[in-house]
Nucleic acid binder design. Structure first.
Length: 562
DNA sequence: CGACGGGACTCAGAAATGTACAC
DNA sequence: AGTGTACATTTCTGAGTCCCGTC
């Protein structure tokens, strides 16, 4: 099959790569003349470039971002830089800018698009499909593979996560002159759009990207890469889980090792040992250092500061409790109270001694030191492998504990979701509570109440039927009892299902299951579980997910053990 | 060594879009 | 049968990890 093909030289990722280059998003279309921008109450015709940037802001007027001072200031600074000198002379304060007409124009345009007839919508869809067909695929080693992101990112205002110092800055339009193309020498080299040139065309088969450009906000590279369904990505994914499975064999030894190191005479060793304990037990990320002022202030394990933990010798009947409170990746809050071993607690007290809240907790440590240590313990081992390992092993254990072979498929799926949820909680994968949550919960509660009444009514009817049977002792009365029993049973089952649904919904409101499912759980565990318990794979993986995990679906039977 | 910057890749939740289902 | 809405899926792009070379 396609998962077992010729091996390449070390570091070589492909022998053939052919594609069309990125699809460039359409150029800016000027506003109609009757849509005006006002400055200080007076209409002001803007130059094309200035107008385009104004529309970026106008489009976001409903968004919370535009209420933030940093966003406003960054936007206004960048906007002014692009203005003509005449405009600069006039437009001095954002507060005097009135974008409301422009805003309304785009709101209306959006509604108009939604109100389009079926035929018109189909036509638009067909056009999009054509672009996808033309630009969305490449040829890699003879196979036609789907590309992940084949469009350049449109210009707009930068939206960072959390308290990002650069929010609102102008993200510039990507032109062919900014783009580096990567393909094979003998392939049909993509044509730049008419009148344009590529920045560079290179033939580097040691990397997997098809095109790249430098983004102007953080000055970092962006890439066009393959879709997760591709062979290249699939193999990499498989490899990731194989490394995590290797950890399974040595993790006990590693745990013994770091426990012993809690007592080390060397401070650095003790810090490594405690940090590793956190990474293993709590599935924390490694925590690279970040450049101050360039990004939101977030941390991982190695970059934890004294202010991010509190030590409680006793708390709620537990001993040696560490209270974590910090912002992690994407500024998602990590809040947890954990009872730790006495030695860990003692070490933490020591690490925090004579430090200010803003000081590093692990002052002798960073991710490079930690990962070098891990590499010595196992080939390919780095901090993130612990997350993959602990996530996958947790799923496997939870599935074992929760699955009842006698259950219906629906009940088994609930168990699966519970197991998935345990992992999402471990990895702190959160989502914002859906806007419609309260409402839909109320509706569900109403259904439950109605169902309860129906159950009570059925109970009453059954009682009556039984009494009648006592009385008459005839076949008709007996049949009626059976009928009422059946009805009651069905209603009770429906009620139970609704209750389960409500529990599930409540437990899930702030938890995002997708990330762990897609990135941390060895798909072979899930596939084996499906096969073992007769659950169709489609029930747990949708089409995209089945495509991504094709490698696993191909190779896994019900006996698979992580 | 270790700091630093560049580079390539994975992983992250929000937002946009599509679909199914209730009314 | 048509329409609105809730939920599922897909897209988007920002935010991490980790490695490498240089000084």
């Amino acid at each position: 099959s396609r998962w077992e093909e010729e091996k390449k030289e070390d570091g070589v990722k492909w022998t053939q790569l052919e594609h069309r280059g990125p699809y460039f998003v359409p150029l800016y279309e000027p506003l109609p003349d009757d849509v005006q921008f006002y400055y200080d109450g007076k209409p002001l015709k803007l130059s094309l470039a200035t107008e385009e940037i104004a529309t970026f802001y106008a489009k976001m007027l409903d968004h919370e971002y535009t209420t933030k001072e940093i966003f406003q200031n960054n936007f206004f600074n960048d906007w002014r830089k692009e203005m003509t000198s005449t405009e600069q002379d006039v437009i001095k304060e954002l507060d005097k800018c009135d974008f409301s007409e422009i805003h309304k124009y785009f709101v209306d345009k959006n509604e108009a698009r939604k109100a389009l007839s079926k035929e018109e919508k189909q036509k638009l869809k067909a056009e999009a499909d054509k672009i996808q067909e033309e630009y969305g695929y490449c040829i890699l080693d003879g196979h036609r593979e789907k590309i992940g992101n084949f469009k350049t990112e449109p210009p707009g205002l930068f939206r960072g996560r959390g308290n990002h110092p650069k929010m609102g800055m102008l993200k510039k339009r990507i032109m062919p002159e900014d783009v580096v193309i990567n393909c094979s020498k003998d392939s049909k080299i993509p044509e730049p759009p008419e009148g344009h040139k590529w920045k560079e065309v290179r033939f580097d088969n040691t990397v997997t990207w098809l095109a790249s450009w430098t983004e102007n906000i953080q000055n970092t590279l962006k890439y066009i890469m393959l879709n997760p369904s591709s062979k290249l990505k699939g193999e990499k994914d498989w490899q990731k889980y194989e490394v995590a499975r290797c950890l399974k064999d040595v993790v006990h030894k590693i745990r013994d090792g770091y426990r012993a190191d809690w007592k080390s005479k060397e401070m650095k060793k003790r810090q490594i040992a405690v940090a590793l304990y956190f990474i293993d037990k709590l599935a924390l990320r490694a925590g690279n250092e970040k450049e101050e002022g360039e990004t939101a202030d977030t941390v991982g394990c190695c970059s934890l500061r004294v202010e991010h933990i509190k030590l409680h010798p006793k708390l709620d009947g537990q001993e040696h409790v560490v209270e974590f409170d910090f912002l992690g990746k994407d500024s998602i809050r990590y809040y947890n109270k954990v009872s730790v071993e006495k030695l860990v607690f003692k070490n933490l007290q020591l690490f925090m001694k004579n430090k200010d809240p803003g000081d590093d907790l692990f002052d002798r440590l960073n991710t490079v030191i930690l990962n070098k240590h891990l590499q010595k313990l196992m080939d390919g081992l780095s901090a993130k492998v612990f997350r993959t390992y602990n996530a996958s092993i947790t799923l496997q254990e939870q599935l074992k504990a929760l699955t009842n072979p006698e259950d219906s498929v629906a009940a088994k799926l609930l168990s699966y979701n519970r197991a998935n949820r345990a992992v999402a909680i471990l990895c702190n994968h959160q989502r914002s509570i859906p806007k419609t949550f309260e409402k839909s919960m109320q509706i569900l509660q109403m259904k439950i109440d109605t169902k309860k009444q129906e159950v009570e009514k059925a109970q009453q009817e059954l009682k009556e039927a039984e009494e009648e049977f006592e009385d008459k002792k005839d076949a008709k009365a007996e049949a009626n009892v059976e009928k009422k029993k059946k009805l009651l049973k069905r209603l009770e089952e429906q009620l139970a299902r609704l209750n389960v649904q409500a529990t599930d919904k409540e437990e899930n409101k702030q938890i995002a299951l997708g990330t762990s499912k897609l990135n941390y759980l060895d798909p072979r565990i899930s596939i084996a579980w499906c096969k073992k318990f007769g659950v169709p794979i489609e029930k747990i993986y949708n089409k995209t997910q089945r495509e991504k995990f094709a490698w696993a679906i191909d190779m896994t039977n019900e006996d698979f053990e992580f």
